[in-house]
């Protein structure tokens, strides 16, 4: 799932907001939600697959944090598209 699709879910957006305030393990995160801990784990996996969340081991726990680089793919797509398009447009205008 790409970053924008992963962001299409309200619980996942709320997870990102919580993790942006402070990295935390899944248990602490689940305490802030009315949905089950396994559900939170599933959402975290989706976010991790999309590159929006990272985890690191701290003692016996995995601590999750927002991964800012994950938001870069959309920007790169847009950048390269318009670089190619506008240089072609410039050639066309000279004909």
């Amino acid at each position: 799932m790409n970053a924008l699709d992963a962001l299409g879910n309200p619980i996942r957006r709320k997870i990102l907001i919580e993790l942006r305030r402070a990295p935390m393990p899944v248990g602490a995160l689940a305490d802030r939600f009315s949905v089950s801990r396994p559900a939170i784990s599933r959402h975290l996996r989706v976010l991790q697959d999309a590159g929006l969340v990272d985890s690191s081991e701290r003692g016996a726990q995995n601590v999750y944090a927002v991964r800012l680089q994950g938001f870069r793919s959309v920007r790169e797509f847009i950048d390269s598209f318009w670089d190619a398009a506008l240089s072609r447009l410039e050639e066309l205008a000279q004909k």
Binding site: I17, R20, F71
Partner: peptide, 18 residues
């Protein structure tokens, strides 16, 4: 959606960080 402003703010801040 509740928290809409904050959500979008999150994405913008993340993108700005790139």
């Amino acid at each position: 959606a509740p928290g809409y402003d904050r959500s979008w703010d999150l994405v913008l801040a993340a993108l700005a960080g790139c």
